[in-house]
């Protein structure tokens, strides 16, 4: 990340990062059987700025707080969060409806290196719900398409029914200046797309390995295999970025819940250059 991007990211942090602001759910959309998107607007009417890849702490009052990546911006101040219901807090968030209020702290964390990637080929590689934190980066790259070389979006899901944002994928695929490839782990007869894993997509993708930046988000094992495939293709570790996930509580590096080796995922991540954490990714205790 450039110093400019760092400064911008720091500049949008709230004055007291531990005080949640009330946000109202203005729209709620089911994405998958266990995944939904909430469109939020600030009750105080203040604008909300963020960088692609950052996350917020969302409060389901009475249940707790959970770190949720920002999955897009509908319009200025209207934030999108795509949530998978996998526990107490996210279950409660799933039960909320239009008009309900959540608490929000953020944005936090280091963003995707969209500035550093300028004038280079860009590989955006997602698995499962990992497409959600990458969607703002995709929006940014496509909104500034002329600043980048080849743009490739590679996505893997469990089954065809688990493909996130299918309309977005279709829209991106319909552009002539973006290469989109999707694969699933398993499918029933009738599926006309690819069956296989994300690293297979990398082998067939056309990009300049010496002059490319990769942004990878998905389950940690998927990212590990994906990074190996990128390195096999000739990419350097410092050009590969991954978004890590750990149990985040304070989001400002105080509580230590998300400690990852000598770093905190909330403060030093969630986006890391692979070269900075490569030696930690295979440590079982982490």
């Amino acid at each position: 990340m450039t110093a400019t991007a760092e400064n911008r990211a720091a500049a949008v942090a709230p004055a007291d990062p531990m005080v949640p602001r009330p946000f109202r759910i203005v729209r709620r959309q089911r994405e998958l059987s266990d995944t939904f998107t909430m469109e939020l607007t600030a009750e105080d009417g203040q604008p909300f700025d963020f960088r692609p890849g950052q996350f917020n702490m969302l409060y389901a009052f009475g249940a707790g707080v959970s770190a949720i990546s920002i999955s897009g911006e509908k319009s200025s101040g209207r934030l999108l969060h795509t949530v998978r219901a996998v526990g107490t807090v996210t279950d409660r968030l799933q039960a909320l409806r239009k008009g309900d209020v959540v608490g929000l702290r953020g944005p936090f964390g280091r963003p995707w290196p969209v500035d550093r990637a300028r004038r280079r080929d860009v590989l955006i590689i997602a698995g499962g719900i990992g497409l959600a934190p990458l969607r703002p980066a995709i929006h940014h790259v496509l909104a500034n398409r002329g600043d980048y070389g080849r743009v490739l979006i590679l996505y893997g899901a469990r089954t065809p029914d688990d493909i996130l944002f299918p309309k977005d994928l279709k829209a991106w695929r319909s552009r002539f200046d973006v290469f989109v490839d999707v694969t699933v782990d398993r499918a029933a007869p009738g599926w006309a797309g690819k069956i296989g894993v994300v690293p297979d997509l990398i082998e067939r993708a056309a990009f300049s390995a010496e002059d490319a930046t990769a942004m990878v988000c998905g389950p940690e094992v998927m990212m590990l295999f994906t990074v190996r495939a990128l390195l096999r293709a000739g990419m350097a570790e410092e050009d590969v970025y991954v978004s890590m996930e750990r149990n985040m509580k304070c989001a400002v590096g105080f509580c230590g819940h998300c400690q990852f080796g000598g770093r905190f995922v909330c403060k030093d991540g969630p986006v890391f250059a692979y070269t900075d954490i490569a030696h930690h990714m295979t440590v079982r205790e982490l």
Partner: peptide, 19 residues
């Protein structure tokens, strides 16, 4: 070897629910 690695990755069912 790569086919075997891909098969193992799919066996891990990495996109499955963590509940």
């Amino acid at each position: 070897a790569r086919r075997l690695e891909a098969t193992r990755l799919r066996l891990l069912d990495v996109y499955g629910s963590t509940r």
